[in-house]
Design a binder for these strands. Structure first.
Lengths: 351, 351
DNA sequence: ATCGCCGATGGGAGCGCTCCCACGGTACCT
DNA sequence: AGGTACCGTGGGAGCGCTCCCATCGGCGAT
């Protein structure tokens, strides 16, 4: 293998200069070939490419980064919370999407889990020191100062769920309202009319949107929204249980439940069972996220699936476009995409 | 905040040189302070540190890497397989452990998902080009050429599960045999004697060890190993189903099942239910991995928990120690740790 | 008082690359 | 023929840091 011979012969790694010498051209020309500049004749390009192959040359990233003041790396920041948040494969799916989008570029993915405030402070310095070309944020908290700091530093940034309806940064989201609409429409189509909702934490924008979708669908269908059928949760199983108990106490006549997460649906299911109700005969149940739990619940849980990997991919593509955009930060700031990807209803036995 | 002022004033980021000027010392001295060299007087060190704080100086990684021929980064390589392998939070847990171990260092974590052969070839060049100081491998395939290549290149490497009993690279593993032993002992203690095993893919070393633990425990207890009670699976739910059917056909009298993964246990559970058997009254069931599914199965599944995050942490610590080891590669190669971390049995309703 | 030694320090010489200016050559115009 | 535009190209000048050698004092030993 040519590559390996290259290593062995020189002892160290071949440099640009050596490639240039071998190809009989100057450093600048080799650099142009490597960077795909059009200002190189075909013959020269070919000669350079041959020399690169023969020597097994691979550019030194550090040198490039230093000389060009780029880093060839983007960071994925995950505000790492308690140990068990990764119970759902959300994070892994995002990473999959991101790294798929990165596959044909030469960019590196830097993973940053920053739970504590101290760590986040470090990050600010870190990003400020120009150590990444762009930053991807996953599941951002509404009160996180980091994104705004990045904005000031003019570092391209994309977040994975807008923090509000007027998110200032570029963002990618799944259609939470649409997902809820799918679920509720499906229940209506099945003849259910007393459809309860267990919401997520309502300071999370996505949870608001899911609730909004629920409301809109019922209103549009002429069924009307009954506030006694709505109970807040916080995405946890325990909160699903509690919400279900409250709902049942208030509205024992309900015939369907739309929970804003599978985990809450699992809690609700337990309470429904204990109350002697059958699923879906007496009460239909729908969750959200299409997590692995959904498929293992008994009965299998109908759930709304978000295209998580696609979201990761889309975030990355938006980020890359922003990085590549030659206009000054002020101009780029003007047209920041707010992408919303459609959700899908996975119909199973529980509805 | 001093840091922010620093940015604003200079327009660009402060450099070593500026810090040196401000502290009234030479570049070399500042460099020594930053790198914690002892050959600096206390007074000077203090003056330099003050200048650093005042300017909000953060070293430029690329420049350091270039000058020192280090990279300040380690790679975590995940042989990305099909879309759905991340169904279990294994990967996320490993990342948690790794990044926890990295938290007090200044090293960066580079995430590399390399599924296709083409990507892996790229990786070889990439690592060869000295772009990382060390590499962490997760769930390595037995026939992967990459680790050996890294070994030749003398790049420190740690793998997360040895590929065989005589793994040449440093490795960290959970005690698979011990985990199986816990499970089987527990079943024996509950009075079960006809304990079946559904194994994982036996070309995976961990699966072999789990089966070995099962065998040893039965042998030690004087119960004896009955080969008709052993059926191979491949870690998938479907294979769990098939294996359970085969076992039931052959040994309808079995009173317990130890499955080498929760997912297979879920498949087995379904078949047991369909056959009219009650869990755990008629047949006790134990899984492996303590995945989220375990807690959501009905009845909740007893399962063996591996300390995954701790494994990630341990891998990283071993890697860092290897990177820091000043001895030549040949010497380092001699004492490569093979760490085995204990597993734990999470007892739930199914056993 | 002189010498030698050692710890503390300054700063030159790169690390491998990109950027950019300058140069020779060709093609086309007047 | 002379001029003007480019195009493709070479190579100097750094990017910000670490390494390492030279230097400078101060100290105890002689």
């Amino acid at each position: 293998m040519a590559t390996r011979q290259g290593f062995a012969r020189s002892g160290g790694r071949p440099t640009l200069e050596e490639v240039a010498a071998r190809a009989g051209v100057g450093r600048g020309t080799v650099s142009r070939v490597i960077n795909g500049s059009p200002r190189v004749s075909d013959a020269t390009r070919e000669a350079v490419e041959r020399a690169i192959a023969e020597l097994g040359y691979v550019p030194n990233n550090a040198a490039r980064a230093l000389a060009a003041n780029r880093t060839e790396a983007i960071a994925l920041v995950i505000p790492e919370p308690g140990p068990r948040v990764f119970t759902e494969p959300y994070f892994a799916e995002i990473v999959r999407g991101v790294s798929a989008a990165l596959a044909d570029t030469s960019l590196q993915l830097l993973l940053t889990m920053a739970g504590s405030d101290r760590e986040r402070r470090g990050l600010a310095d870190y990003f400020g020191a120009h150590r990444v070309d762009g930053v991807l944020f996953v599941s951002l908290h509404a009160d996180d100062p980091l994104p705004d700091l990045l904005d000031q530093l003019a570092i391209p940034t994309v977040v994975s769920g807008p923090r509000s309806a007027d998110e200032p940064l570029a963002s990618v989201d799944s259609d939470n309202a649409g997902g809820a609409r799918l679920a509720v429409s499906h229940l209506l189509a099945r003849g259910r009319t007393k459809i309860a909702a267990i919401t997520g934490k309502l300071d999370v924008y996505g949870a608001q949107r899911r609730l909004a979708g629920y409301r809109e669908t019922l209103a549009d269908a002429g069924v009307g929204v009954d506030e006694t059928l709505i109970e807040p949760g916080d995405f946890s199983e325990e909160s699903g249980r509690l919400a279900m108990e409250a709902l049942l106490a208030r509205r024992p006549d309900l015939d369907a439940v739309f929970a804003a997460s599978d985990v809450m649906a699992a809690g609700a299911r337990q309470v429904l069972r204990e109350s002697g109700r059958r699923i879906p005969e007496d009460v239909a149940l729908i969750g959200y996220d299409d997590s692995p739990i959904a498929r293992h619940l008994d009965p299998q849980l109908t759930s709304v699936r978000q295209p998580i990997a696609e979201m990761g991919r889309a975030m990355t593509e938006i980020l890359l476009a922003d990085i590549a955009d030659p206009r000054p930060a002020a101009a780029r700031r003007l047209d920041r995409p707010q992408l919303v990807l459609p959700s899908e209803l996975m119909v199973r036995a529980s509805s």
